[in-house]
Simulated assay, not measured.
Amino acid sequence: MCKVLIFGCVAAVILMSAAYGAPLNTIQKAARLEASIKKLTFPPPSLQNFLDFYTPNDRQECNYTTLACFLKELEVLKQDLEEDKQRPVINIQKNLEDFMDPNFSNPTCKKCEANEKKKFPEFHQEMTRFLQSMQKEIA
């Protein structure tokens, strides 16, 4: 009985470590984008008009740069939230980090700080549009 339990645990660890590095398939990517879009209504009203966010509006050729900027701004938001309200931001960040390409470089794309600063409602709207456009590309 003990050998079966140990073997089962070892098998589970092997499967988990093999799956950890596996790339996401199209269905998984679409599900993560959908979850991120749904969770974008998280900041409390007190922060919605208090903070300014660099808000990219580049499309297509600068997707990775735009996504990196949104992730950077989500980190700013997370730092300004109380610890018990950070979970939705952390979940969105985790979902979106899998879409990043660390090797992407396009000198014609704007740096995050070159984008216009906007309040959360406009930031939210642009990020939602961007994620929806990514969703359409996957489908």
Rank of each mutant, 00 (worst) to 15 (best):
E82T: 11
M16H: 11
A139P: 03
D84P: 00
E113Q: 12
P45C: 00
V10K: 02
V4Y: 13
N91Q: 15
Q60R: 09
K111G: 07
D101Q: 13
H124G: 00
A31F: 08
D84K: 14
N49P: 03
F120Q: 04
A31P: 03
N115G: 06
M100Y: 02
P43T: 00
V13F: 09
L81W: 02
L51D: 00
A31Q: 14
F53D: 01
G21N: 05
P56R: 07
D98L: 08
F123P: 01
P43K: 02
Q125A: 09
L51K: 12
D80L: 05
P45W: 13
F70Q: 07
P88F: 02
C112V: 04
P88A: 00
F123T: 06
Q93I: 10
D101T: 06
P102V: 02
S36C: 11
Q48W: 03
F104R: 02
I37Q: 04
F7V: 04
I27L: 06
P43F: 03
A139G: 06
C69V: 05
K118F: 05
E75H: 06
L77A: 12
A22G: 04
A68W: 07
P102E: 01
R59L: 10
M16L: 14
E116R: 12
N57F: 11
I6V: 15
A22T: 13
M127Y: 03
L33I: 11
Y54E: 06
I6K: 14
P44S: 10
Y20S: 14
K78S: 08
C69T: 02
I90N: 09
E83Q: 12
C109T: 05
D98T: 02
L51C: 10
K111W: 05
I92V: 15
Q28P: 04
N115F: 13
E61Y: 08
L47Y: 04
V13Y: 08
F99K: 00
M16E: 07
R59E: 14
L51N: 07
A12K: 04
Q79H: 09
P107V: 12
Y64K: 07
K111F: 13
L47N: 05
E137P: 01
C109G: 07
M127R: 02
H124T: 06
M127V: 05
S46C: 03
C2F: 11
F42R: 01
E82D: 08
M1W: 09
D52C: 10
L15H: 08
T26S: 14
V13W: 06
T41Y: 09
E126T: 09
P88T: 00
I138L: 12
L40V: 06
D98C: 05
K29R: 10
A11G: 07
D58N: 15
N106S: 08
L33G: 06
A31N: 15
S46N: 09
S105C: 12
L40I: 14
P23Y: 01
D98E: 07
N57W: 07
E61W: 15
C109A: 07
R129C: 05
A139W: 07
S105R: 10
E75Y: 04
G8Q: 07
M16V: 12
A12L: 14
L96C: 01
L81I: 00
D84N: 10
E61G: 10
Q132I: 03
K72C: 10
R32A: 01
P44D: 13
P43R: 01
I138T: 08
M16I: 12
P23S: 10
Q48T: 10
F99C: 00
L40F: 15
K111C: 02
F123C: 05
A68R: 15
S105V: 08
M1S: 14
